[in-house]
């Protein structure tokens, strides 16, 4: 990490996710061979905090950038770090096709069920009845559809090798998430296919909660809809 102070709200999972990603790259001694792609969203400034070469992608397009970078530089680690609006709304096509082509990249997907940067609007992953600035009376699934389980969706694609969903609000969670990210970087580097790590995270500003309360709310509401654990390992779906 650089020594810059993180711009994220107090208690936001982004900071932890950034740190464990960088720790993994340190452990793999891969800093000199890694190119990261930042999205548009809260983590648009990821390149201010991650001390590696990074490119800032247009909203939703990071998987396309990563595709080109990896194909042009096959000896490098290439990853995207994206939020749910970036990856599951505007970037759906780029996400699905990068996965379908089985690009040997890592996608780190922070799912906090809301658009954080722009002030808490509803995202494709916003839960039913969950309030946001564009669903003030709660998300009405009748008119705005159900939360998009993009991770389960891409797990079906043969090009995807490893899919897992983690959380970083508890010590155990952080340890598991770090192990998963490390596995993702190792396996994509061995050209086994796309490795996808979703991190369900809190957004206390968007959810309008205290940080600690938001983590409790997350466990009670987000986890039932986005269950933690491995979804696909070594190219095989884990049967639930």
């Amino acid at each position: 990490m650089t020594d810059k102070e993180l711009s994220y709200c107090p208690g936001c999972g982004h900071g932890t996710a950034h740190r464990i990603t960088m720790e993994v790259l340190d452990d793999l001694d891969a800093i000199k061979d890694t190119i990261g792609i930042a999205p548009v969203g809260c983590s648009v400034l990821a390149y201010e905090f991650m001390n590696i070469d990074m490119q800032q992608a247009a909203h939703g397009r990071a998987p396309a950038l990563a595709t080109a970078v990896k194909r042009l530089w096959p000896s490098k680690h290439v990853f995207t770090y994206q939020g749910d609006g970036d990856l599951a709304a505007i970037g759906t096509a780029e996400t699905i096709h990068a996965c379908n082509r089985g690009e040997n990249i890592v996608i780190i997907f922070i799912n906090n069920g809301i658009y954080g940067m722009t002030g808490g609007q509803m995202a494709p992953t916003t839960l039913p009845q969950m309030k946001s600035s564009t669903s003030p009376n709660g998300r009405d699934t009748g008119t705005m559809g159900h939360p998009l389980k993009i991770t389960e969706l891409i797990a079906q694609l043969p090009g995807v090798h490893f899919v897992t969903r983690q959380a970083v609000h508890t010590p155990g969670g952080v340890r598991k998430a770090k192990k998963a990210i490390k596995k993702a970087f190792e396996q994509s580097f061995e050209n086994k296919g796309l490795c996808f790590v979703e991190i369900v995270s809190n957004c206390n500003s968007g959810w309008k909660m205290e940080p600690r309360a938001s983590n409790v709310w997350m466990e009670e509401n987000m986890f039932p809809y986005y269950p933690l654990g491995d979804i696909k390992v070594n190219g095989e779906l884990i049967s639930k």
Partner: peptide
């Protein structure tokens, strides 16, 4: 030389952005 058919023109121009960012 790498050649790839993208899923859309938007994806293609962003692949250009990714590739050009590395000096290729």
């Amino acid at each position: 030389m790498v050649v790839l058919q993208a899923e859309s023109e938007i994806a293609a121009i962003n692949m250009i952005y990714g590739g050009a960012s590395t000096g290729k």
